[in-house]
Simulated scan of single mutants.
Amino acid sequence: MTGNETAQGPKHKRDLTRRKVVVAGAGAAVAVGVGASFAAGAFADESGKSGTSGASGKKSGSAETCYRLTSETTEGPYYIDADKIRRDITEDKEGIPLVLNLKVIDSETCEPIAGAAVDIWHCDALGIYSGYESLSTGGGGGTPPTDAPTDAPTGEPPSGEPTGEPPSGGTGGGVHEEPTDDERYLRGTWRTDKQGRVTFRTIFPGWYRGRTVHIHTKVHVDGEWTDSGYEGGHTCHTGQFFFDEASVLAAAEVEPYSTSTTERTTLEEDTIYDQSGTTGGLLKLKYNKKNIAKGVVGSITMGVDPDATNTGT
């Protein structure tokens, strides 16, 4: 599904248990690339509201909106269970600044879950994952290895409509691969506050063969925060965040995304996204429609079952 640009234009132009993680040093890298000042300003505002399109309308005594249980998805092959405790995961990667405002609540009680450890990880602007650069199926040219793993289910290639049942319970997807390098950009873990909120600064992800644009996430609870990181507990949610087509098409006009020669899978074609909107991980996005390069703010609330175990493997 990978190809170079043709006379008709780039391929991206389509139609509309134990955990222990190491604390990063205090001097976390600032966002780089176009519009970094936008990201810095948005990152400072951690009281922003999350997306609500998946709300059931149910209210708790504290006036919190109650959300349906967020869809479980595959972990994918590129998870590393030993990441850095940090909110800025950009390192030196170029791309459109993205501020990700997340909130974690108990889908039964509607109450925020404080002290949870939230992981996020995703590919760079050209579809490359840190830790797996030699296996990643994105890039700015050439043909990726035919045996390179993806986190899309095996079988028939994506079509206009998803086939089979929507993913649930962490089934399906690529088999975990051991890291092939020591890079750890665009990966990080942070603690939810008393309101269940956590904010990350990163870049708008690119795309790679067989998958729409997405970000992976895990939520860990009942563990212990120590001076060295987070230990113990269990994973109650494994999911993915998704971007609407309008934002992806806008981003695809900006360098370095515009240099990608990898054919893009649309949101409708993706076999992991269950087409259920916020419940399925679709982010609420804010950005300048005339200049997305200034930066994007994405928000979502995850309704989870803290007593469940969903590892996505």
Rank of each mutant, 00 (worst) to 15 (best):
T65I: 05
S53A: 14
E72K: 08
E72P: 03
I113A: 07
I120S: 07
P97E: 01
I113W: 02
T73R: 09
T74D: 15
R68P: 02
E64S: 13
I113P: 04
T90W: 05
K58R: 14
A117G: 04
C110Y: 04
R68L: 10
K103N: 04
L102F: 04
A116R: 04
Y67N: 09
L100E: 05
E75I: 11
S60P: 02
I85T: 12
K58W: 06
E64Q: 13
N101E: 10
G95L: 07
T90C: 11
R87S: 13
T73F: 10
S71H: 09
A82K: 15
K103A: 11
L102K: 04
C66Q: 15
C66Y: 03
Y78P: 00
D119T: 01
S71A: 13
D81Y: 10
T65S: 14
W121A: 01
A114S: 15
L102E: 05
E72W: 02
K59Q: 14
W121N: 02
N101K: 10
A63C: 11
A82E: 14
V99P: 06
V99S: 13
E91V: 04
A63Q: 13
W121M: 00
S56T: 12
K93E: 10
D92G: 14
V118E: 05
R68C: 08
A116V: 03
E108C: 05
G76P: 01
S107K: 10
A116H: 06
